[in-house]
């Protein structure tokens, strides 16, 4: 009997480990952040009021969230972050799809080389790569010098410290995260399917939208999430490449925590950011599941 039960116990343990991990390193910290967001800032250590005051009364305030709603700066920053992340995601998709398609359709020896080239930038520190873009985008950087040398312009074009620089940085940094899942779903696709569609009267464009695109959809969704989510909270790229007025939510979060030491406000910023990310993802997944069921 015990011999028969043993594998079940092991199965339970293996299943429990990731749950335990999530509980300790995600759910618990989240609960702490949630608690801090409902506190008042004080000059003390830690710099927020405890959950229960001296009399043992529950002390909870929604002031921080109300402040986020009333101060236009936050709404503006959230919107701008969503917009920048969204634009970078779209551009990554537009650039990444043809690249992933090309890799998936190349000969197998060429394929591994091309994939290596996609992954190669990860061998260099993210910070260094973003830093290198400063050298490229500078007023007297490689790009401007080349343009001036070619006579395209006689004075430097201001790219560095603009939203455009952030946009370039985001797209560059997250492009591989778009290409890899797209490649995975395109590589699995049987080329005969596209030919069959053409054989049945679909032009190349129609065959793409009827066959390739729907079959690549899981890859498209995964790629978009992998780009959008980190781009939304990105701190390093706007900090290094953006100007003082190109304020994104990652930067705001950092400033509230470390510059203003307003932990409760920073926590509420973080929670709203999380909601902004989680709600569309849950919605999308449910929509996808429903669609899969309907088909």
């Amino acid at each position: 009997m015990s011999a028969a039960r043993e594998p079940v116990t092991w199965k339970r343990i293996t299943v429990a480990i990731p749950y335990l991990w999530l509980l300790v390193f995600f759910l618990l910290p989240f609960a702490i952040i949630l608690k801090i967001s409902l506190a008042d800032p004080i000059i003390a250590r830690p710099p927020f009021t405890p959950l229960f005051d001296d009399q043992g009364q529950l002390s909870v305030t929604f002031d921080n969230f109300l402040f986020l709603l009333t101060d236009k700066l936050y709404a503006y920053t959230y919107l701008k972050s969503v917009f920048m992340a969204f634009a970078a995601t779209v551009l990554c998709l537009l650039l990444g799809f043809p690249m992933a398609y090309g890799i998936a359709r190349s000969s197998s020896s060429m394929r591994s080389l091309l994939l290596l080239l996609i992954v190669l930038p990860f061998w260099i520190s993210f910070l260094l790569r973003v830093y290198a873009w400063m050298g490229l985008l500078n007023n007297y950087g490689v790009i401007n010098n080349t343009l001036m040398f070619l006579g395209v312009t006689d004075q430097p074009i201001q790219i560095m410290y603009t939203d455009l620089a952030i946009f370039i940085g985001l797209t560059y940094s997250y492009l591989p995260f778009m290409i890899l899942p797209l490649y995975a779903s395109l590589e699995r696709m049987d080329l005969d399917l596209v030919e069959a569609a053409q054989d049945l009267g679909a032009s190349r464009t129609q065959a793409f939208w009827d066959i390739t695109w729907p079959l690549a959809r899981p890859g498209v969704i995964a790629g978009c999430l992998l780009v959008f989510i980190p781009a939304m909270g990105e701190y390093v790229i706007p900090y290094l490449l953006g100007g003082p007025e190109s304020l994104l939510i990652g930067r705001v979060l950092f400033d509230e925590f470390f510059v203003n030491r307003d932990w409760p406000l920073a926590s509420s910023v973080a929670i709203v950011l999380l909601l902004l990310l989680v709600v569309p993802i849950v919605f999308m997944q449910r929509n996808d599941a429903r669609q899969a069921e309907a088909e």
């Binding site: 049987d190 005969d192 399917l193 030919e195 069959a196 049945l200 066959i211 729907p214 079959l215 088909e295």
Partner: peptide
Amino acid sequence: NMMFQSYAVFPH
């Protein structure tokens, strides 16, 4: 029209 060896039936 062609019947493919892999059948190439559209999976979706």
